[in-house]
């Protein structure tokens, strides 16, 4: 399954793009995705935190990713 990822803030600089596609095994969870991302982009591990949003909600880790989901990398926020 190929999932399209939206990427923001410093994560965009690390990945080198504001969107990318990533191949995931069937029944991959958010935690699986985080592990794959950290392996591919080790600088993500140096961030204070990074979260994944699934369909505009913060994910906790166990959620399964489906093919049409909107998935985003959320580095530490700093609005306001």
């Amino acid at each position: 399954m190929v999932t399209r990822l939206l990427i923001f803030g410093i994560a965009k600089d690390i990945v080198g793009s504001s969107a990318t596609e990533i191949a995931l095994p069937e029944n991959a969870t958010i935690t699986d995705l985080k592990n794959i991302l950290e392996e591919r982009y080790p600088r993500l591990k140096q961030l204070s935190t990074f979260m994944i949003a699934l369909n505009n909600q913060y994910a906790t880790g166990d959620e399964l990713i489906k093919s049409n989901d909107e998935v985003a990398i959320i580095p530490p926020v700093s609005g306001g």
Binding site: F8, G9, I10, A53, V77, S78, G79, G80
Partner: peptide
């Protein structure tokens, strides 16, 4: 509202 916004809203400042 401002304290929570700074912690949770996906906005980034450079």
């Amino acid at each position: 509202i401002i304290d929570t916004l700074k912690q949770t809203v996906p906005i980034w400042k450079k």
